[in-house]
Protein backbone atom coordinates (compact mmCIF):
# COMPACT_ATOMS: atom_id res chain seq x y z
CA UNK A 1 0.00 0.00 0.00
CA UNK A 2 1.45 3.35 -1.03
CA UNK A 3 0.19 6.80 -1.99
CA UNK A 4 -0.20 7.48 -5.69
CA UNK A 5 2.58 9.20 -7.58
CA UNK A 6 1.85 12.52 -9.30
CA UNK A 7 1.50 10.84 -12.68
CA UNK A 8 -0.85 8.23 -11.35
CA UNK A 9 -2.91 10.86 -9.57
CA UNK A 10 -3.18 12.81 -12.79
CA UNK A 11 -4.33 9.80 -14.79
CA UNK A 12 -6.83 8.82 -12.14
CA UNK A 13 -8.28 12.28 -11.77
CA UNK A 14 -8.57 12.76 -15.50
CA UNK A 15 -10.56 9.60 -15.67
CA UNK A 16 -12.75 10.52 -12.74
CA UNK A 17 -13.42 13.95 -14.18
CA UNK A 18 -15.08 12.31 -17.17
CA UNK A 19 -17.78 10.98 -14.90
CA UNK A 20 -18.10 13.41 -12.03
CA UNK A 21 -16.49 16.57 -13.39
CA UNK A 22 -15.73 19.14 -10.75
CA UNK A 23 -17.47 17.07 -8.11
CA UNK A 24 -14.15 15.32 -7.74
CA UNK A 25 -13.40 17.95 -5.11
CA UNK A 26 -16.09 16.37 -2.93
CA UNK A 27 -14.17 13.14 -2.90
CA UNK A 28 -11.03 14.74 -1.59
CA UNK A 29 -12.29 17.48 0.71
CA UNK A 30 -14.97 15.69 2.62
CA UNK A 31 -16.71 17.43 5.46
CA UNK A 32 -16.82 14.35 7.72
CA UNK A 33 -13.28 13.02 7.74
CA UNK A 34 -10.25 13.14 5.46
CA UNK A 35 -10.18 10.49 2.76
CA UNK A 36 -7.34 9.38 0.55
CA UNK A 37 -6.41 7.19 -2.41
CA UNK A 38 -3.93 4.37 -1.98
CA UNK A 39 -2.35 2.01 -4.45
CA UNK A 40 -2.09 -1.67 -3.64
CA UNK A 41 -1.09 -4.21 -6.28
CA UNK A 42 -2.07 -1.98 -9.22
CA UNK A 43 -5.44 -1.28 -7.72
CA UNK A 44 -6.53 2.05 -6.38
CA UNK A 45 -8.49 2.09 -3.15
CA UNK A 46 -10.35 4.97 -1.60
CA UNK A 47 -10.69 5.03 2.15
CA UNK A 48 -10.73 7.28 5.17
CA UNK A 49 -7.33 8.15 6.56
CA UNK A 50 -8.33 6.58 9.82
CA UNK A 51 -8.74 3.19 8.21
CA UNK A 52 -5.58 3.73 6.19
CA UNK A 53 -3.57 4.41 9.32
CA UNK A 54 -5.00 1.46 11.16
CA UNK A 55 -4.32 -0.85 8.24
CA UNK A 56 -0.63 -0.03 8.09
CA UNK A 57 0.41 -3.00 10.23
CA UNK A 58 -1.03 -5.38 7.66
CA UNK A 59 1.73 -6.67 5.43
CA UNK A 60 1.69 -5.91 1.74
CA UNK A 61 1.37 -9.54 0.80
CA UNK A 62 -1.46 -10.12 3.19
CA UNK A 63 -3.50 -7.05 2.44
CA UNK A 64 -6.25 -8.03 0.02
CA UNK A 65 -8.44 -4.95 -0.06
CA UNK A 66 -9.34 -1.95 2.01
CA UNK A 67 -11.99 0.69 1.67
CA UNK A 68 -13.50 0.86 -1.80
CA UNK A 69 -11.67 -0.20 -4.93
CA UNK A 70 -11.98 2.40 -7.70
CA UNK A 71 -10.20 0.53 -10.44
CA UNK A 72 -6.80 -0.53 -11.57
CA UNK A 73 -3.85 0.71 -13.56
CA UNK A 74 -3.22 -1.30 -16.66
CA UNK A 75 0.23 -2.35 -17.70
CA UNK A 76 0.30 0.53 -20.18
CA UNK A 77 -0.32 3.05 -17.44
CA UNK A 78 -3.96 3.76 -18.23
CA UNK A 79 -6.57 3.69 -15.52
CA UNK A 80 -9.54 1.39 -15.79
CA UNK A 81 -12.58 2.10 -13.62
CA UNK A 82 -14.22 -0.84 -11.91
CA UNK A 83 -17.87 -1.33 -11.10
CA UNK A 84 -16.93 -1.13 -7.41
CA UNK A 85 -16.55 2.65 -7.79
CA UNK A 86 -20.21 2.95 -8.70
CA UNK A 87 -21.50 4.17 -5.30
CA UNK A 88 -19.28 7.24 -5.52
CA UNK A 89 -19.75 7.79 -9.24
CA UNK A 90 -23.51 7.61 -8.97
CA UNK A 91 -23.49 9.99 -6.04
CA UNK A 92 -21.61 12.70 -7.92
CA UNK A 93 -22.42 11.91 -11.54
CA UNK A 94 -23.11 14.82 -13.85
CA UNK A 95 -24.64 12.96 -16.75
CA UNK A 96 -27.18 10.31 -16.06
CA UNK A 97 -29.23 7.93 -18.13
CA UNK A 98 -32.28 6.12 -16.80
CA UNK A 99 -33.24 2.87 -18.50
CA UNK A 100 -36.73 1.40 -18.65
CA UNK A 101 -37.45 -1.90 -16.87
CA UNK A 102 -37.19 -3.82 -20.15
CA UNK A 103 -33.69 -2.46 -20.70
CA UNK A 104 -32.45 -3.30 -17.22
CA UNK A 105 -31.51 -6.93 -17.73
CA UNK A 106 -29.87 -6.50 -21.16
CA UNK A 107 -27.61 -3.87 -19.66
CA UNK A 108 -26.85 -5.99 -16.58
CA UNK A 109 -25.80 -8.78 -18.90
CA UNK A 110 -23.14 -6.55 -20.39
CA UNK A 111 -24.83 -5.07 -23.45
CA UNK A 112 -24.80 -1.49 -24.62
CA UNK A 113 -27.83 0.64 -23.93
CA UNK A 114 -29.97 1.02 -27.04
CA UNK A 115 -32.14 4.02 -27.62
CA UNK A 116 -35.39 2.08 -27.24
CA UNK A 117 -34.50 1.27 -23.62
CA UNK A 118 -33.83 4.80 -22.52
CA UNK A 119 -36.42 6.24 -20.22
CA UNK A 120 -34.83 9.55 -19.37
CA UNK A 121 -31.58 11.38 -20.12
CA UNK A 122 -29.83 14.36 -18.62
CA UNK A 123 -30.21 17.43 -20.80
CA UNK A 124 -27.22 18.78 -22.73
CA UNK A 125 -25.16 15.60 -22.48
CA UNK A 126 -22.28 15.79 -24.95
CA UNK A 127 -20.93 12.91 -27.02
CA UNK A 128 -18.32 10.51 -25.55
CA UNK A 129 -18.82 11.55 -21.98
CA UNK A 130 -18.92 9.28 -18.93
CA UNK A 131 -22.47 8.59 -17.82
CA UNK A 132 -23.94 6.64 -14.95
CA UNK A 133 -26.89 4.41 -15.73
CA UNK A 134 -29.84 4.09 -13.38
CA UNK A 135 -33.06 2.16 -13.53
CA UNK A 136 -36.34 4.01 -13.21
CA UNK A 137 -36.31 3.47 -9.44
CA UNK A 138 -33.04 5.43 -9.25
CA UNK A 139 -30.93 2.40 -8.42
CA UNK A 140 -27.52 2.75 -10.10
CA UNK A 141 -26.83 -0.15 -12.47
CA UNK A 142 -23.49 0.73 -13.96
CA UNK A 143 -21.70 3.28 -16.08
CA UNK A 144 -20.60 3.81 -19.63
CA UNK A 145 -19.80 6.38 -22.27
CA UNK A 146 -22.43 8.26 -24.21
CA UNK A 147 -22.45 7.31 -27.88
CA UNK A 148 -24.30 10.42 -28.92
CA UNK A 149 -25.21 13.75 -27.47
CA UNK A 150 -28.69 14.24 -26.13
CA UNK A 151 -29.68 16.21 -29.21
CA UNK A 152 -28.41 13.60 -31.66
CA UNK A 153 -29.99 10.82 -29.71
CA UNK A 154 -33.45 11.93 -30.79
CA UNK A 155 -32.60 11.22 -34.42
CA UNK A 156 -31.29 7.71 -33.88
CA UNK A 157 -33.50 4.75 -34.69
CA UNK A 158 -34.70 2.70 -31.67
CA UNK A 159 -32.10 -0.03 -32.04
CA UNK A 160 -29.20 2.40 -32.28
CA UNK A 161 -26.70 2.41 -29.42
CA UNK A 162 -27.12 5.32 -27.07
CA UNK A 163 -24.58 4.50 -24.36
CA UNK A 164 -21.53 2.27 -24.68
CA UNK A 165 -21.28 -0.25 -21.87
CA UNK A 166 -18.27 -0.03 -19.58
CA UNK A 167 -19.22 -1.65 -16.31
CA UNK A 168 -22.40 -2.96 -14.77
CA UNK A 169 -23.55 -4.58 -11.55
CA UNK A 170 -23.68 -7.96 -13.22
CA UNK A 171 -19.89 -8.04 -13.13
CA UNK A 172 -20.05 -8.89 -9.46
CA UNK A 173 -21.26 -12.27 -10.63
CA UNK A 174 -19.60 -12.57 -14.02
CA UNK A 175 -16.16 -11.23 -13.21
CA UNK A 176 -15.75 -12.17 -9.59
CA UNK A 177 -12.58 -14.10 -10.33
CA UNK A 178 -10.80 -11.33 -12.23
CA UNK A 179 -12.25 -8.24 -10.64
CA UNK A 180 -10.51 -8.57 -7.29
Amino acid sequence: MRPLTDDETKVLFEKLTKYIGRNIAHLIDRPDEPYCFRLQKDRVYYMSEEIMRRATPVGRRNLVALGVCFGKFTKTGKFRMHITALPYLSQYAIYKVWVKPNGEMPFLYGNHVVKAHIGRVTEDMPEHQGVVIFNMADVPLGFGVSARSTVDMRKVDPTGIAVFHQADNGEYLREEDTLF
Binding site: M47, A55, N62, A65, L66, G67, F180
Partner: peptide, 12 residues
Amino acid sequence: HRLGISNTVVCN
Protein backbone atom coordinates in the same frame (compact mmCIF):
# COMPACT_ATOMS: atom_id res chain seq x y z
CA HIS B 1 -18.02 -4.07 -2.43
CA ARG B 2 -21.38 -5.17 -3.74
CA LEU B 3 -23.07 -4.27 -0.47
CA GLY B 4 -21.44 -0.85 -0.56
CA ILE B 5 -19.33 -1.25 2.54
CA SER B 6 -16.37 1.08 2.80
CA ASN B 7 -15.04 0.59 6.30
CA THR B 8 -13.41 -2.81 5.88
CA VAL B 9 -9.86 -3.95 5.62
CA VAL B 10 -9.62 -7.40 4.10
CA CYS B 11 -6.49 -9.31 4.96
CA ASN B 12 -5.19 -12.79 4.51
